[in-house]
């Protein structure tokens, strides 16, 4: 699956439309968790997680150091989830504004929650502006988490990102709710 993840980032570099496939990475894990599959997505299918293992273990780039303990604390994990959702909503909001014609299409990638990086070369096929805006926005989120994840993999252990991954946190909370009910 790590090949899928690597292909995703490569395709998004050349044509931003492919960024839409990222929606799969958001929907599938949630659906699996909601329908009782627990964290099967994280455990077996997450291409990004496998990419981190590939970089860290197979390529041997990881220092293998243990990350600070507060990363796995509930406060940090939930705090990061809120932080992530805030930027996700902001991205969707911008898409809505572009759809309404209030904002013009930003042909940039919003990286690390602060920098706007030009990405106009990837806008090759003319599509409805809001669809393009969503693609740019989603790709920015995906690329940001890849960059953070790779840095953490190198400095600490592979998949340190998974400790506070917003998707992983959400699926775990859903799983806990479901397990608690029974």
């Amino acid at each position: 699956m790590w090949v899928v993840s690597a292909t995703y980032f490569a395709l998004g570099f050349f044509n931003i439309v492919f960024a839409w496939f990222g929606v799969i990475c958001f929907l599938i894990p949630l659906l699996i968790a909601i329908f009782g599959g627990g964290k099967q997505y994280c455990n077996h299918y997450c291409g990004r997680g496998q990419l981190f293992l590939k970089i860290g273990n197979s390529l041997g780039w990881s220092k293998g150091r243990l990350a600070p303990r507060w990363l796995s604390s509930k406060y940090f994990r939930h705090g990061f989830l809120v932080f992530f959702l805030f930027f996700f909503v902001q991205m969707v909001w911008l898409t809505v504004e572009v759809a309404k014609g209030i904002e013009t299409l930003h042909e940039t990638i919003h990286l690390m929650w602060s920098f706007d990086v030009p990405w106009h070369w990837a806008y090759r096929t003319e599509i409805t502006p809001w669809k393009a805006q969503f693609a740019f926005g989603l790709y920015g989120i995906m690329l940001t988490s890849l960059i953070v994840g790779v840095i953490l993999t190198i400095v600490y252990r592979p998949r340190t990102w998974c400790v506070f991954c917003p998707m992983g946190n959400m699926t775990q909370q859903i799983s806990k709710l479901k397990a608690g009910k029974k």
Binding site: G37, G38, R77, V163, Q172, A179
Partner: peptide, 21 residues
């Protein structure tokens, strides 16, 4: 965090993830 890394590396397959928790 139930990520499943331990399940993958355990040489005795002695670890499992309980209901995603």
């Amino acid at each position: 965090v139930a990520c499943g890394v331990c399940v993958k590396v355990c040489p005795k397959s002695a670890i499992s993830i309980y209901k995603g928790c």
